[in-house]
């Protein structure tokens, strides 16, 4: 088992009073709580802070923690031989648990545990895991293999850290940031209590062509100046294969051309849309013929895209 210096985690002295511990916890919790923090490492950091606080705020647990001795953070250690007899009534192996499990497993302090009719009851834990899938997988639906290391309690209420693997079917309709609940696929409930649920956070891998917003997709559509000016029919790749898109004459850069129902399928019914965002691409190297044609166009055209500048300035002054 690896040692964690809970005093260091909270940034308090080893002789800090309960109020100082609570104050330090609140300050850090406000900063790192995963529901309010945008820090990518916030969740892990908050878990460490919460574990430290759960132990140090309880005088009995704090005494038990202090009795473990002092080590460097991350250093392998074993509790003193008489420690579990002194502070708990359960036997445990220190190989398959971490420090937080050790304190959560102290007698009478298991979360949400209760005795009913002499039977030890505890609902199964909810698990939460992120499933990274591709846009194509989201579009068709997919099955993902997930691996989680979770604390589990046996029938005697002893905690073990076990690796669990899940095969989870993600139906079509997923998009970035969406949540899927798999009922009863979390930790096993004890003594007849219900099993926990498994929550899948869907994270889409970035795609080389498409950007995702909800179930809509956005694609850059480069057009030549003459395609934009004259109109054209161009091939556009979609998740379901290429389609021909009619670009109207006089299309300008930044214009959104909508391909209805060519986005991601929605969970219930229907599909999002695909938007082609027009970019006007100009050749960086011109052949002699191209240069001559552009020069001829420049001479012959009266088009002035900056005509409004002068008008607007006059209006402002």
């Amino acid at each position: 088992m690896k040692y964690k210096d809970y005093y260091q985690v909270l940034g308090v002295e080893r002789d800090a009073g309960t109020d100082a511990i609570k104050k330090a916890y609140r300050k850090l919790a406000h900063k790192y709580h995963p529901d309010v923090s945008k820090d990518p490492a916030g969740e892990e950091k908050f878990k460490e802070i919460a574990d430290a606080y759960q132990t140090l705020k309880d005088p009995e647990k704090r005494a038990a923690y202090d009795q473990l001795g002092r080590y460097q953070s991350g250093q392998e250690f074993r509790p003193p031989p008489d420690w579990s007899r002194q502070f708990g009534d359960t036997q445990f192996s220190t190989d398959d648990i971490d420090l937080a499990d050790l304190f959560a497993g102290l007698a009478g302090r298991r979360p949400h545990a209760e005795r009913r009719g002499g039977t030890f009851q505890m609902p199964g834990q909810d698990y939460e895991v992120t499933a990274h899938i591709t846009l194509d997988e989201a579009s068709r639906g997919t099955t993902v293999d997930l691996r989680l290391t979770v604390p589990e309690y046996d029938q005697q209420g002893r905690v073990h850290r076990v690796e669990r693997t899940f095969k989870a079917r993600i139906p079509k309709g997923a998009t970035d940031g969406q949540r899927l609940r798999l009922r009863g696929k979390g930790g096993k409930g004890l003594g007849g209590a219900p099993d926990g649920d498994l929550y899948l956070n869907i994270a889409l891998h970035p795609h080389a062509l498409y950007r995702v917003s909800g179930h809509d997709l956005y694609l850059d559509l480069p057009l030549t100046p003459w395609e934009a000016a004259l109109g054209a029919v161009v091939e556009v790749p979609t998740l379901g294969g290429s389609v021909r898109l009619k670009v109207p004459a006089g299309t300008h850069a930044g214009q959104k051309l909508r391909l209805a129902r060519r986005g991601l399928p929605k969970p219930s019914e229907g599909e999002g849309d695909l938007y082609a965002i027009v970019q006007i691409a100009v050749p960086t190297v011109l052949s002699e013929r191209e240069r001559a044609l552009f020069e001829e166009l420049a001479k012959g055209s009266s088009f002035n895209p900056r005509g409004h500048f002068e008008q607007e300035i006059r209006h402002e002054t």
Binding site: Q178, R179, R181, P267
Partner: peptide, 14 residues
């Protein structure tokens, strides 16, 4: 109904 389904998108459709 959320209670009846084993796999459920948590969205406005349930």
């Amino acid at each position: 109904k959320l209670e009846q389904a084993d796999v459920m998108w948590l969205d406005a459709h349930c």
